[in-house]
Nucleic acid binder design. Structure first.
Lengths: 122, 122
DNA sequence: TGTTCATGTGAACATATATTCATATGTTAA
DNA sequence: TTAACATATGAATATATGTTCACATGAACA
């Protein structure tokens, strides 16, 4: 089984062949993409941010709306909105001193729902 | 605009009405689901784990294969496989002293690809 | 039986992250 | 201009997390 291999001298149990190794390396996104992808999922990986996104599924909201709705302090929400903004998941519009946030991506709900699928299937 | 509201005494800029608040609360998954969902995305939020999953898209592999392929030490991979196992994203079979890991969920690639969509659209 | 090998695991460490507090910024209204 | 308000932000803190190291476990084989 291992006769065809030439990579990975570091272990002797290897069964994967060079063609598999090459396929994996071909399919694997570039380092930078992988980093961005991890960053994106990291953003989803926090209950506060998920709650914010969940709220915005229904309608745009200002910061204090979200804070009141989630029962959290304004500063915490503001910090998290910043993260969501940097990930281009939310956008905002200003109206006087009030800032309204809304969703900035059509995939969010799909990613969200597929995550829920995984959760619910066990 | 704010005449219909009665929630959130904590701020006076509120425009969202009780029906919106109730809708959000109705749509918002239970606290426990939200926690599980965040946990799931947290698992995707690390480049090492993404690389492992990416490798397993192509074929099952033993721990040292993965370690060699990613150029990382075996212990780090083993720790991360544990995380992936707990999240039910990978499964394993033992063959003597060798343990082969493979994907344990059909959604993984979809979630993965939708994340990439978001990344690529900017 | 003793050695080698693949894997798992706990402790230690460095780093990242979420929240709070205090305060800055900028807008509205008195 | 001053006061009140919505939001943003930096510092501080507590907590979580990823990797390495050393070693334990368990299987194969001489």
């Amino acid at each position: 089984m291992a006769e065809n291999k030439s990579f990975a001298d570091s272990c002797s149990c290897t069964i994967i062949h060079d063609d598999v190794v090459n396929k994996v390396k071909a399919l694997m996104p570039q380092e930078e993409k992988l980093y961005d992808l991890a960053e994106l999922f990291k953003v989803f990986g926090d209950t506060t941010r998920i709650k914010i996104l969940c709220s915005l599924f229904e309608s745009e909201m200002c910061v204090c709306d979200i804070a009141a709705l989630l029962g959290m302090n304004q500063s915490a929400i503001s910090h998290q909105l910043r993260v969501l903004k940097q990930a281009r998941l939310v956008k905002f519009r200003k109206d006087g001193k009030v800032v309204y946030y809304s969703l900035d991506d059509e995939h969010i709900k799909q990613i969200f729902d597929q995550g829920l699928n995984h959760i619910n299937e066990r």
